[in-house]
Design a protein around this nucleic acid. Structure first.
Length: 357
DNA sequence: TATCCACCGGAATTTATGGAAG
DNA sequence: CTTCCATAAATTCCGGTGGATA
């Protein structure tokens, strides 16, 4: 059924983008000055997750590459600190002294090094940029004339609120590109092309693609994963073509796969807390802390890390919420935590099978 | 109503780490 | 090898909030 699984990878990059013409134009208008040796314009790209913000920007940089070699650097800012990001940019730069990116190098020194090293225009793509704490990073990057920033975030309102008046550019008007979910027909077109490239011919009908596009409300990431899951299910069930029941069951598998990938990308503390929440079921926050304290010593036995205090736990739980792995109902001390899908477990076997945790 | 309690989350402070200089 | 220092992560501190209790 699936002839080329790469087509459904998160990292797969189609040669052209469908239904993003206007958006691509605007992106290229911002990037184009870099081709003339000037700095590109800063640009804020906003939109819900899974609608192709990252794909669009990466594609735009590819297009730019076809015309002229402009250096660009892509950073996933999620959970990174200002220093870590500057260091990563510096390290990736060919002219940089490798020792300059030392872990304890002052942030100001890193910026000075970047100013020295970077002469030709560089485009820095900050993906998941809403997650960067404070405005330090933007301030530092704004101080380097040759560097322009394409910031990718979910909510432009939160972005502006955080930057306040310190914002180096307006991040508005031409400097703001808002992506929205695809229409059902549009997403069906996208899925259709993936099906042609990655599935056997006639594996799926147009009306089924529209059904998927509708069900995922125009979120391309989910649509693509749902199509893949439907094809897998059809294959497992010995169907020659995708059937309605395969589509029905595809959404759960796709959703779980996306969440499981999110969970795998998190550090140990988060995974321990997630597993605690998942195994405990809906649990008031008071009892959650009690249980953590009861099991923590055992769980961390033989691991390089040690249990963390309540305040740090709050931060980890907030991140688990951001990642869509954990939900919370209620306010204040009446919060109840629960796993969004308790079929998703942490990769390591953190908590032993003691009947109750 | 007044007081207590537990949590939230921002901010200040402390601690652990590891690279560089002496 | 030792000392020094900046970063990053965690802890401590604290004002704000709102239900529980008397």
């Amino acid at each position: 059924m699936i002839t080329d699984p790469r087509v459904f990878d998160e990292a797969y990059r189609p040669r052209t983008l469908l239904h993003r013409d206007r958006e691509l134009d605007q992106l290229m208008r911002a990037l184009r000055p870099a081709a003339g040796g000037h700095g590109a314009e800063d640009l804020l790209v906003s939109g819900p997750s899974g609608v192709g913000k990252t794909s669009l920007v990466r594609h735009g940089l590819d297009v730019l590459d076809d015309h002229v070699a402009v250096e660009h650097f892509y950073v996933r800012a999620l959970g990174q600190t200002t220093g870590a990001i500057l260091r990563a940019i510096l390290q990736a730069h060919p002219d940089a002294d490798p020792a300059a990116a030392a872990r304890n190098r002052p942030v100001d020194a890193l910026r000075a090094d970047l100013i020295d090293v970077v002469d030709d225009p560089v485009v820095v793509v900050l993906d998941e940029a809403d997650d960067v704490p404070g405005t330090d990073l933007l301030d530092h990057l704004a101080g380097i004339p040759a560097i322009s920033v394409v910031a990718i975030c979910h909510s432009p309102q939160k972005w502006r609120a955080r930057l306040g008046s310190a914002s180096p550019t307006r991040w508005g008007g031409e400097h703001h590109l808002a992506l929205d979910r695809f229409g059902v027909d549009e997403l069906a077109d996208i899925l259709d092309r993936r099906a042609r490239q990655g599935l056997v011919p006639t594996a799926v009908r147009r009306d089924q693609l529209e059904r998927i596009a509708d069900e995922v409300a125009g979120v391309a990431r989910h649509g693509i994963q749902a199509l893949r899951a439907a094809a897998e299910l059809a294959g497992e069930r010995g169907h020659a073509r995708i059937r309605a029941e395969d589509v029905d069951d595809a959404f759960d598998r796709a959703e779980r796969r996306i969440l499981a990938a999110n969970l795998r990308s998190l550090p140990v503390h988060h995974q321990v807390l997630y597993e605690l929440v998942r195994r405990s079921g809906p649990l008031p926050v008071v009892q959650l802390h009690e249980r953590y304290e009861a099991i923590a010593a055992d769980v961390y036995e033989g691991r390089p890390r040690t249990p963390i205090g309540k305040r740090a736990r709050r931060n980890k739980l907030a991140k688990l919420r951001d990642y869509g792995l954990v939900e919370v109902d209620g306010e204040r001390q009446f919060r109840v935590y629960r796993a969004v899908d308790d079929g998703i477990e942490a990769p390591n076997n953190f908590i032993k099978q003691s009947g109750e945790i």
